[in-house]
């Protein structure tokens, strides 16, 4: 099979959507008042597409991911998956969100345990992912002994292990220092290309979005509406110095203007 991510975007566009979000509204009750977190959100997501949501704090980015993960019911509209079975979700949270009583290996194999995979197989698969995210030698470490970046990589491995249909990333690198963060971009990019995942990622960083995504969607301040849907046509794999190209600069400018 041809690896789609290396092909021109036009081919990627011909893949069927696996998720359509239509007129999605989410309203919270805030005391007596109503708080509209998301308003009229519509977009389609194709298989193997990597999209980023950018937006100011409180624009409903986390809320959107929670709807996609089935953790939050929309007030109106719907997020519909075009899949035969209920979608498998892999989620990376802003804080690594590991179980402190489980070792790295045990944390990573949790999704397989829940699926009833035999322990031997789950361990084998977890070991594979530990290699992938570069944590060999830390299998039996506890989360408290990991650095922030390592914990985040455990979270990523856990999100990937059960071969999810959709990967949801909520500012996964926000708590990391700049150097680690950029190394993680490279790693995530590689993993995404190798595993051919469909990804929705939330971020505050324009650089991060442009480095990783096929498309960047900008949300407005509350209530969150889609203000801009920008395709990112930068060639892949994207090297570090892609940020110095004219194209990158232009897109960054557009995004910055949209965020205000």
């Amino acid at each position: 099979m041809i690896c789609a991510s290396f092909l021109p975007r036009s081919v990627n566009l011909m893949l069927p959507p696996i998720l359509t979000v239509q007129n999605l509204n989410v309203t919270f009750a805030a005391g007596a008042k109503q708080l509209c977190a998301l308003e009229n959100i519509s977009f389609a997501l194709r298989a193997r597409e990597f999209i980023c949501f950018l937006g100011p704090s409180g624009s409903g980015k986390t809320t959107l991911l929670r709807v996609l993960a089935g953790l939050q019911k929309p007030t109106a509209g719907a997020a519909q998956f075009q899949l035969a079975q209920t979608p498998k979700i892999g989620m990376v949270f802003q804080q690594a969100n590991l179980m402190p009583w489980r070792t790295v290996l045990e944390n990573i194999k949790l999704p397989l345990e829940l699926e009833g995979v035999s322990d031997a197989n789950a361990k084998l698969k977890a070991q594979e992912l530990i290699e992938l995210v570069g944590l060999r030698g830390f299998e039996n470490s506890l989360p408290r002994d990991l650095s922030g970046g390592m914990a985040q990589r455990v979270g990523l491995a856990r999100a990937l292990i059960h071969n999810p249909d959709l990967l949801l990333l909520d500012e996964p690198f926000a708590s990391l220092d700049a150097l680690t963060r950029e190394r993680m971009w490279g790693e995530l990019s590689m993993i995404w290309q190798a595993k051919q995942k469909t990804v929705v990622m939330v971020t505050h960083s324009i650089h991060e979005a442009l480095f990783l995504a096929d498309r960047v969607l900008v949300l407005t301040q509350r209530p969150g509406k889609i203000k801009l849907d920008l395709p990112v046509n930068l060639p892949r794999p994207r090297a570090d110095d892609v940020r110095y190209t004219h194209q990158f600069g232009e897109m960054a400018k557009k995004l910055r203007a949209a965020i205000e």
Partner: peptide, 24 residues
């Protein structure tokens, strides 16, 4: 957040009890 994790993974009530609530 750990409840969210398990629910996103479609864990059953019993799985939530034994894999999350009791150890936590």
């Amino acid at each position: 957040a750990l409840y969210d994790l398990l629910r996103a993974l479609h864990a059953t009530r019993w799985q939530i009890l034994f894999k999350l609530e009791i150890p936590a």
